[in-house]
């Protein structure tokens, strides 16, 4: 794929335009599919434009974290797969992948999507929920796609049973207990413009990035990335915009899980 000419994008922005005739505060088409990996306890594939992210959720029996002895654990990881983008390389997780996973994790955790209390089994024995984010195709805005896919996968996950030492993962199972729902909206700063849901071309030339994760009532997580800055005024405006824009994300998610 040839990267779009930087000046062309800036020239278009000067005329108030974006690729594919999108408005500055408009999402690309979003598609959410659940249970795409039936072997996993929960899974979801999310497309935002050409960005495609898959999340698989597995539950395993383990020991609790030392500072939280009476609740289960949540572990979130992200892989920027080499097949997703010519620029991704094999090797240990990059700082970018780690930041991505941790931002998604903070949103899910702060919104209480996973009820970790319900993952307690007995003393020194808890369930750990592993949320693995697989980036399959990169065209910008991984954060929103990752949060959408992770939350959807968790909300649609089944809860395995423990019979003796055996983990029962199939058959007549209940659902993973969840307590919240979270989505995120990511904005890119490109010269003086603020763009919702940046695509790959826009991300290549953005100076700064701001992700705001929220539920219906409150902001649950935020992360500013890259060297570019945002003003305090922009921050409060984007927080308000996020409460507005996130409605469609939650609706799509609820639709996908048949809620």
């Amino acid at each position: 794929m040839i990267a779009e000419n930087e000046e062309y994008i800036l020239e278009m922005l000067g005329k108030g335009m974006r690729e594919h005739e999108r408005g500055h505060m408009q999402y690309r088409d979003i598609k959410i599919e659940t249970n795409t990996i039936p072997h996993a306890e929960g899974s979801a594939t999310v497309d935002i434009g050409n960005t495609k992210v898959l999340v698989g959720v597995k539950l395993a029996v383990g020991t609790p974290l030392p500072d939280k002895p009476d609740e289960g654990a949540l572990v979130t990881g992200a892989e920027l797969l080499p097949l997703a983008n010519a620029e991704y390389e094999t090797g240990p997780p990059s700082p970018e992948a780690i930041e991505f996973a941790r931002v998604v994790d903070r949103g899910i955790r702060a919104a209480g999507v996973v009820d970790t209390d319900a993952l307690f089994i007995e003393k020194d024995k808890v369930w750990t929920a592993f949320v693995d984010i697989y980036v399959l195709n990169y065209d910008g805005n991984l954060f929103d796609a990752g949060t959408l896919a992770a939350t959807t996968a968790l909300l649609s996950a089944r809860m395995p049973k423990l019979e003796g030492d055996e983990v029962i993962r199939e058959g007549n199972l209940g659902k993973l207990k969840t307590n919240g729902i979270v989505t995120s909206c990511t904005y890119a700063k490109v010269s003086k413009n603020v763009l919702l849901d940046p695509n790959g071309n826009e991300e290549r030339i953005m100076s700064g990035r701001l992700t705001i994760a929220n539920d219906e009532k409150v902001v649950r997580a935020m992360q500013k990335g890259l060297s570019g800055s945002f003003s305090f005024k922009e921050l409060t405006e984007l927080v308000d915009a996020t409460f507005d824009k996130s409605k469609q994300l939650r609706d799509k998610m609820k639709q996908a899980i048949g809620d």
């Binding site: 997580a221 992360q223 500013k224």
Partner: peptide
């Protein structure tokens, strides 16, 4: 100018 911003909670 905001150069770093992170948040979690409510």
């Amino acid at each position: 100018d905001i150069l770093l911003l992170q948040m979690d909670g409510s």
